[in-house]
Design a protein around this nucleic acid. Structure first.
Length: 679
RNA sequence: GGCGCGAUAGCUCAGCUGGUUAGAGCGCAUGAUUCAUAAUCAUGAGGUCCCCAGUUCAAUCCUGGGUCGCGCUACCA
């Protein structure tokens, strides 16, 4: 394996439209922090880069909704995020933001360099334009009816009700969110990064030279490379972001996904204005990106292509991507407020940073999605941190206090059993390292915990409280060794549980730690005065976790109520307009799922005129379509025929969307003749 | 639908290039113990390794097909 002189560690930039939650922590920040603390403790040269990602359309929309500026939004969340990271002990060397002047200049220069080198291609395409506002509309500035679930308020890129990704051109009755007017298509020019031109070296670099990447990462990259890469737009028509530094590009900004990863570099520059380059350009620097699985393609393909196109940068050596963490069985969601927010956790559980760090690491979604439950949180705290780790420390310190006035007793002759115990625990260092080096934090932490298990067993087997009645010299040796194990625990857990290690370090009255001391049995010398023992961890009782569960249940209920919020009334239409709509009644003759389409049902209707076929995207709400046969439905009869999946669809069947996103077909309250008009 | 990743004990997960009784932690049962936050220590119960077929002397592991979960992507009047 290649030897490096230093390591640059980045963690995905959290998007500043909301606070940070446990999913972010488990997936990215806790593992990155453990890794960085480990390297630092080993005395390696390492830089840990973080920052808020503050551009992009969702922020402008949130700002508009709240009647404030985008800057207000990002200021609010950047401050919450930054403060909560600090309090939680995520040990960034720098935590800046993409609205910083340094970043703006840097990203702008970066783009310009690629532009001047001819690394982009320019393309003109048709996009929606708001004539009243005089601007192009980014995907999320267009809303309309979702063509699938017919929910109002679907965005141009995604319907939040049914979760489908969309293109703005697919929306029914598109509307500008700025003025409410109907947008028109207009030509606009954008810059694209021709990923296809980078395909060859990317394949070689990832598929041949980085077979050691995690399977999820490698597999995802291979899939993209095998499909063939397409040019990717790197600019947008928007006024919130970094202006495209090219003549004639007024009103255009860098696409947020282009500017965000550059933030890793500009934040480094902000911290180290004179020496940042060695962290990004020296081939002896190892670059590691910690991300979640949704970011794989960006960090493994697009960003490296940007760096390569620029020409002077190193490429990531590894991109450890985690899977997702669920919460009490449901996907974590910022918009649905289904999350444990870090800043709230810190308020609800003051001084318990390490408990959350421990639980998130013990249950980290390293190989597949995992579930966080408060019950598990409580159990791991009470049964592992308190019972195993905290208890062992407490036993050793209390016994020392009791028999030796808190002074480390002298070590006498070692028995075979002592030696055996020592051998076991000196292995722990190598095991922890072996796991940390390949980003297996869950196993690494478990391995550290075996130190405490060894200690507990040692005390149970040697029974110093019994021997104290006859042989104090032997007790001295037993406690001497036990205290060495305690000191080792403090070091081994520093990357994982920094607050507890610090607390323990003070209890032991140790000046400092080094990773290289791990495994040694002379960390505390005889006669050394220990500090006052206090409890390292406290039990968490039922009421505390029940309160958290209740909080989530309340959220769920609130979400349901909120989901019922009816959409705003559309602008008025005339009676004549309405009469143009030809809505009729028909009876379902046949209803089947369309093959090779997840969401389409094919209806054969008796419309009183010889029958017609209509496709409707409601399959997910009706898993047993045959049950619909015989039912009467309403449909729009005068839409032009549309061909979908090779089938002509002659109209649109009407359905209502329930608060939970399920689609419900609308039917007459009493049977009526097929083909009659609705009006 | 296409592609990727996953599916192993009640729960959360290990399991190297296929090879005797498939492992760990928690939970559970029984026993021991009391220095310790009723914590600890020992022992034990508990598994059609998602399903089907194939390759092989031998499959949890390889191949093909399927089911379920998640991500990316498409379709969704």
């Amino acid at each position: 394996m290649k030897q490096f002189k230093r390591t640059t560690v980045t963690s995905a930039l959290p998007y500043a439209n909301g606070p940070v939650h446990i999913g972010h922590l488990a997936g990215v920040y806790v593992p990155a922090d453990i890794y960085v603390r480990y390297l630092r403790l080993k005395g390696e040269d390492v830089l840990f880069i973080g920052g808020s990602d503050e551009h992009g359309v969702p922020i402008t929309i949130k700002a508009k909704k709240e009647g404030v500026t985008p800057q207000d939004i990002v200021d609010r969340y950047h401050n919450i995020i930054k403060k909560s990271f600090e309090e939680f002990g995520i040990s960034f060397d720098v935590y800046s933001r993409t609205t910083s002047p340094v970043h703006h200049q840097f990203a702008s220069d970066f783009f310009r360099k690629l532009y001047d080198k001819g690394e982009f291609v320019e393309k003109t395409s048709e996009q929606y334009y708001d004539e009243e506002a005089g601007q192009f509309l980014a995907d999320r500035y267009i809303t309309g009816e979702c063509p699938h679930c017919h929910a109002e308020g679907a965005y141009g890129d995604q319907c939040e009700k049914c979760g489908t990704s969309l293109s703005p051109l697919e929306l029914i009755n598109p509307k500008s969110t700025i003025t409410g007017s109907k947008p028109v298509l207009r030509e606009t020019k954008h810059w694209y990064l021709p990923l296809d031109k980078h395909e060859k070296w990317l394949s070689q670099w990832i598929l041949e030279e980085h077979k050691e990447w995690k399977t999820n990462v490698y597999g995802q990259c291979k899939s993209w490379l095998d499909m063939g890469l397409q040019p990717r737009a790197v600019s947008r028509d928007l006024d919130w972001g970094i202006p495209v530094p090219v003549e004639g590009a007024e009103g255009k900004v860098l696409y947020v996904w282009f500017d965000a990863p550059i933030g890793y570099i500009s934040n480094t520059k902000e911290l180290l204005p004179d020496s940042w380059e060695k962290w990004w350009k020296d081939p002896e620097t190892r670059l590691v990106h910690f991300i979640g699985k949704d970011n794989i393609v960006f960090h493994c393909i697009v960003f490296p292509a940007m760096l390569k196109a620029e020409g002077s940068y190193i490429l990531p050596d590894n991109v450890p991507a985690n899977e997702f963490l669920n919460l009490e069985g449901d996907k974590i969601s910022t918009s649905r407020n289904w999350a444990v927010w870090l800043h709230e956790y810190l308020e609800d559980f003051p001084g318990k940073q390490d408990v959350l760090r421990y639980v998130l690491t013990a249950n980290a979604p390293e190989t597949k999605d995992n579930d966080f439950t408060w019950k598990d949180f409580q159990a791991r705290n009470n049964n592992e941190l308190v019972a195993v780790y905290g208890n062992f420390v407490n036993r050793a310190l209390v016994l020392t206090q009791k028999y030796f006035d808190g002074k480390v007793p002298a070590c006498g002759e070692l028995t075979d059993y002592d030696k055996e115990t020592l051998r076991e625990f000196t292995d722990v260092k190598a095991d922890v390292e072996r796991y940390l080096d390949v980003f297996r934090f869950r196993d690494a932490q478990k391995e550290a915990m075996t130190l405490a298990r060894i200690g507990n067993k040692y005390l149970a087997d040697t029974e110093p409280w019994k021997i104290a009645k006859t042989d104090m010299e032997r007790v001295a040796t037993i406690l001497h060794l036990s205290l060495q194990i305690v000191a080792n625990l403090a070091i081994a857990f520093e990357p994982f549980l920094p607050f507890s290690s610090e607390k323990l370090r003070k209890m032991l009255n140790m000046p400092s730690f080094s990773w290289n001391d791990l495994g040694k049995i002379n960390l505390l010398s005889s006669g050394h005065q220990l500090g006052t023992p206090t409890l390292l961890f406290e039990k968490i009782d039922d009421s505390a976790v029940e309160a958290q569960v209740q909080k989530l249940l309340d959220t769920k209920k609130a979400n349901e109520i909120k989901a019922y919020k009816p959409a705003a009334i559309k602008e008025n239409v005339t009676f004549d307009d309405f009469c143009k709509m030809d809505i009729r009644v028909a009876t379902v003759l046949e209803c089947t799922k369309v093959p090779k389409a997840d969401k389409l049902l094919q209806f054969k209707l008796d419309d009183g005129m010889g029958g017609r076929t209509i496709l409707s995207g409601i399959a997910q709400s009706y898993p047993n379509p045959e049950e619909l046969v015989g039912m009467q439905v309403l449909y729009v009869a005068n839409f032009p025929t549309r061909r979908l999946k090779g089938i002509d669809s002659e109209g649109m069947i009407l359905s209502a969307e329930d608060a939970d996103g399920r689609l419900v077909l609308v039917q007459p309250s009493r049977p009526v003749t097929n083909g009659v008009n609705v009006g």
